[in-house]
Design a protein around this nucleic acid. Structure first.
Length: 561
DNA sequence: TCAGTAATAT
DNA sequence: TATATTACTG
């Protein structure tokens, strides 16, 4: 009787021709529903008597795909005979009244859905989904092989429900049906998820399973919605699937779809009962990195959302998993903007990570900044002790204009320290006990960066510790006086005109990188030929065309002039 | 409405 | 304890 996945596969024009058992004592209502269903090319078998309907089912004189049953039909004693008898048939209960407990009971007893009358076309239009749902739950084995092509439209949820809707579970639940109906206040979502196919009409409206009316009755039903968060919620909230199977693995990184960045749902069970199933929630970051392949510089929009969406019954707050890859994107965005210009919305834009919200970024940015505050002073301290070593690391990845580090003892200039927190070549700093890291070394996201040595790309002319700064400012053309990036304390000793605006620094550095043929700006010491060659050699380039070296030499010469 | 920050939750 | 999220303020 139940439609199988194979049936569906060979069913052209589905759901046309769907055979609907309609049981309603109210003949007017029945005829109205019937006519609507027939408009949709469904084949309707109307029954006004429950026993007749049951007989039709048991005799198998007709084959039905789905049943629509008015609650009051044959329900004078509060039983749901049809529902309990027609276990295999996806049954949609209908009622004029909006009695929550009745709804609960029906759902608990296995009703596919509870629709409140009048049954608009809108509601009836999608009842076929229950057939599909049932088909996929009828046999686990059939699921994997069947209807895969249709998953984007109708099958996403049934696929997810395989684990919970096997016949064994169903039987078990049937036995518990009565009990469940009484304790559904707490378990409403679970019960309905087990039994329910996708909500018919609501799917059209953003995938909500319960309508607002339900929420009025259910304090647990969280529909909190901040005005102004529409956009963000539309991205982040709907990633939750009200599904037990999914719930139990809700902390699994959605890496395959998410391409390296994951949202995980919070396990909000007070007793943490779900935690046992957190298969990969504790995967180390190294694994994540392995899974996470976000192409650097790619304009491809990364998604942290799974492609499936479900209802919002179990809407849970989502938690952004700041994987190394995601963080790398973050850092790249921050760098691109310049630390001072990096604001959440812009970072968000640059990161191009679907589903990530401005709030997420803002929070991360907050942490980012805090970390910098903690780390940089220590780094500065280290620089005093190992100036050369540190210079190479700090300035290795991104050459920084050689402004005297006036700030070393007086705070820091943001433009000069971002390598410390999030930059690729500062590995070793993170290994130092004094430099707490976000991730263990193996998960550092910046390992993919090519290493460069400071003296290759314009080694900053750092003063010796004994001579912390030159009394003669070397402001290159284009730099203007700015207090940007200074902490107040530094103002006492350091004339503000010695500092370039940070964006100027970035601009000049970027220009120097992108146009290596141009003379280096003042303040950048040109690399020595030897260092260039050795670096190239380190990178596996041993065959240097003559003109290359001469160019470098020429540049060095011109730079010296 | 957004950014930044403090407080709170996990 | 570290980090994420939320609430609040400007």
């Amino acid at each position: 009787m139940v439609c199988t996945a194979d049936d569906l596969q060979g069913w052209k024009d589905f759901p046309k021709g769907l055979r609907v058992l309609l049981l309603d004592e109210d003949t007017d209502s029945a005829s109205e529903i019937r006519s609507r269903l027939e408009k949709m090319d469904y084949i309707v078998f109307t029954f006004c008597n429950e026993n007749e309907a049951l007989t039709a089912i048991s005799n198998r004189t007709e084959c039905f795909h789905v049943a629509i049953v008015e609650v009051s039909t044959g329900n004078s004693n509060g039983s749901f005979k049809f529902l309990e008898s027609a276990k295999d048939l996806p049954t949609i209960m209908t009622s004029n009244s909006h009695c929550l407990s009745t709804m609960m009971k029906c759902i608990a007893l296995g009703a596919a859905e509870f629709l409140q009358k009048p049954l608009s076309e809108d509601k009836l239009n999608n009842i076929w989904q229950h057939v599909v749902h049932k088909a996929f739950n009828a046999g686990e084995t059939g699921i994997s092989k069947s209807l895969k092509p249709a998953k984007d439209t109708t099958v996403s949820r049934p696929q997810l429900q395989v684990e919970t809707m096997n016949p064994e579970n169903e039987n078990l639940l049937e036995a518990e049906g009565e009990a469940q109906a009484h304790k559904l206040d707490n378990e409403q979502s679970a019960a309905s998820d087990r039994f329910q196919a996708p909500s018919t009409p609501q799917l059209k409206h953003g995938g909500r399973l319960l309508d607002d009316g339900d929420c009025q009755d259910q304090p647990n039903c969280s529909m909190e919605k901040e005005p102004g968060d529409q956009e963000e919620d539309s991205k982040s909230v709907d990633i939750t699937c009200g599904n037990l199977a999914e719930e139990t693995t809700s902390k699994v990184d959605l890496v395959p779809r998410a391409e390296g960045v994951g949202l995980k749902e919070e396990d909000d069970s007070p007793d943490g009962s779900n935690s046992g199933s957190n298969i990969s929630s504790h995967r180390n970051d190294k694994d994540r990195v392995g899974d996470a392949r976000v192409e650097n510089g790619s304009s491809k929009k990364t998604s942290i959302l799974p492609s499936f969406c479900g209802n919002r019954v179990n809407k849970k707050k989502t938690k952004v998993d700041w994987t190394p890859e995601l963080h790398k994107r973050f850092v790249q965005a921050v760098e691109q903007l310049g630390v001072d210009q990096a604001i959440p919305s812009r970072i968000l834009d640059l990161m191009k990570v679907e589903g990530l919200t401005r709030h997420n970024v803002a929070s991360h940015l907050q942490k980012y900044r805090i970390h910098r505050r903690h780390i940089v002073p220590k780094e500065d301290d280290r620089r005093w002790h190992h100036p050369r070593e540190t210079i190479q690391r700090v300035y290795a990845q991104k050459p920084v204009m050689a402004f005297p580090p006036y700030h070393l003892n007086h705070g820091f200039s943001t433009s000069q320290i971002y390598p410390v927190w999030g930059h690729p070549s500062s590995h070793q700093m993170y290994g130092h006990p004094g430099f707490p890291s976000w991730w263990p070394p193996e998960s550092w996201p910046w390992k993919t960066y090519p290493r460069m040595h400071a003296d290759m790309w314009g080694c900053p002319a750092m003063p010796t510790p004994q001579v912390p700064w030159s009394p003669f400012p070397q402001n290159p053309p284009g730099f203007h006086s700015s207090d940007t990036g200074q902490e107040p304390g530094s103002m006492q000793r350091v004339p503000s005109e010695l500092y370039p605006a940070e964006d100027e620094v970035d601009r000049v550095v970027k220009e120097a990188i992108s146009k290596p043929w141009l003379p280096l700006p003042l303040g950048l010491k040109p690399p020595s030929t030897e260092s260039v060659l050795s670096e190239l050699h380190r990178n596996g380039i041993s065959n240097i065309p003559p003109y290359t070296t001469s160019n470098i030499s020429n540049r060095n010469k011109s730079q010296r002039k």
